[in-house]
Design a binder for these strands. Structure first.
Length: 322
DNA sequence: ATGGTTTTTACTGCGTC
DNA sequence: GACGCGGTAAAAACCAT
């Protein structure tokens, strides 16, 4: 009754495909000139007019920001930033494949043999036991799924931490790596306040719904993760932006949820449905054009549910203001 | 396994552009 | 006439017991 957040919603995603822009274009839309790649800056630009058509999303900069010179000095450090996203935090030794010494000179054949042995052993130690190899694969999956879901970096870190803990507590036997990794992503997204529904997570994973819910429950219990019931409000920004609504409408939607919360309308209902209904109602109140089917598409919720919820929302609002 | 609640599916009628 | 909206009944899904 209270634990509605586990709920899943069956909805085939085949019809929720959105028209995709053609990225194969090789002619400048501005002047018709030829496009060329600038790999250093990760851009695709026009050779005629210099228009940047496409920018790579990879950021090659450091993970911190500096606002003045002294801050830059104090934050700067030598070496690659560590990350929990690599199974060894990126700190392990790597031996280059080129048989060159530090000055770029070639090594003698005797030294080459030695380096080859070192490489072999280094690799063996690096992925020493099954746990390390397990983690290596899982973190790859977590990264992949997070990207597909558009989740921010900190969620991936959190998911990685959760997975590590599950691994350390020996929760893995009997469960698939993919399953636990998926559950970690789901839990991390919710903890970070940017929840994705079970359905959304499932679509980027290779496991089925049942395994995901089972595994998710299990690791939440075993690790004593504190995952509050999903708050409808946390879905609102994403839905509102997907529908191209104004900030005003978004705020309005929050107020509707707030009013409903005071009336005790929230418990037992799907948070996604509530959020969708609030967004729809708010758009109406702000005279912004959105149809029920639009909302049902972006929220993956049925129109009927939206109708039922939004009726209740407006009533609650009416009670409060009256 | 079962029962109660919620959501979905499918279908209908109404008004408007 | 297509579309958006509102309602209903039956089916399905989900959760707790």
């Amino acid at each position: 009754m209270s634990d509605t957040d586990i709920r899943t919603y069956t909805e085939e995603t085949s019809e929720s495909e959105k028209p995709r822009e053609n990225v194969e274009e090789t002619v400048c839309p501005e002047c018709g000139g030829r496009l060329q790649n600038d790999s250093e800056h990760g851009e695709t630009l026009c050779s005629e007019c210099g228009l940047v058509v496409e920018e790579d999303s990879i950021d090659h900069g450091p993970e911190w920001r500096a606002f003045d010179a002294s801050e830059r000095d104090s934050k700067s450090r030598v070496g690659a930033p560590t990350t929990k996203m690599m199974h060894d935090k990126g700190l392990s030794t790597n031996i280059g494949w080129q048989d060159k010494d530090a000055y770029g000179r070639s090594l003698s054949s005797r030294q080459r043999q030695k380096m080859q042995r070192l490489r072999t052993w280094n690799e063996r130690f690096r992925t020493r036991d099954s746990k390390e190899r397990n983690l290596k694969q899982a973190l790859g999956e977590i990264d992949r799924m997070s990207s597909a879901l558009g989740l921010p970096e900190n969620v991936r870190e959190t998911a990685s931490v959760i997975y590590r803990r599950a691994l350390n507590e020996n929760l893995l036997p009997g469960r698939s790596i993919e399953g636990v990794a998926t559950a970690s992503v789901y839990a991390a997204a919710r903890q970070a306040g940017v929840p994705r529904s079970l359905d959304e997570v499932r679509t980027v994973s290779r496991i089925d719904k049942m395994e995901l819910t089972r595994t998710y429950r299990y690791i939440v219990r075993q690790l004593n993760l504190e995952v509050a019931p999903a708050d409808p409000e946390s879905y609102i920004p994403r839905f509102a932006s997907d529908l191209g609504l104004s900030d005003e409408a978004e705020g309005r939607a929050r107020k509707l949820i707030e009013a409903a919360r005071n009336d005790g309308l929230l418990s037992g209902k799907s948070p996604v449905g509530l959020a969708a209904a609030a967004v729809y109602a708010a758009a109406l109140l702000c005279n912004e054009k959105v149809t029920q089917s639009d909302v049902s598409d972006v929220a993956n919720i049925s129109e009927v549910t939206i109708r039922n919820r939004y009726k209740e929302l407006l009533e609650a609002e009416g009670v409060v203001t009256a």
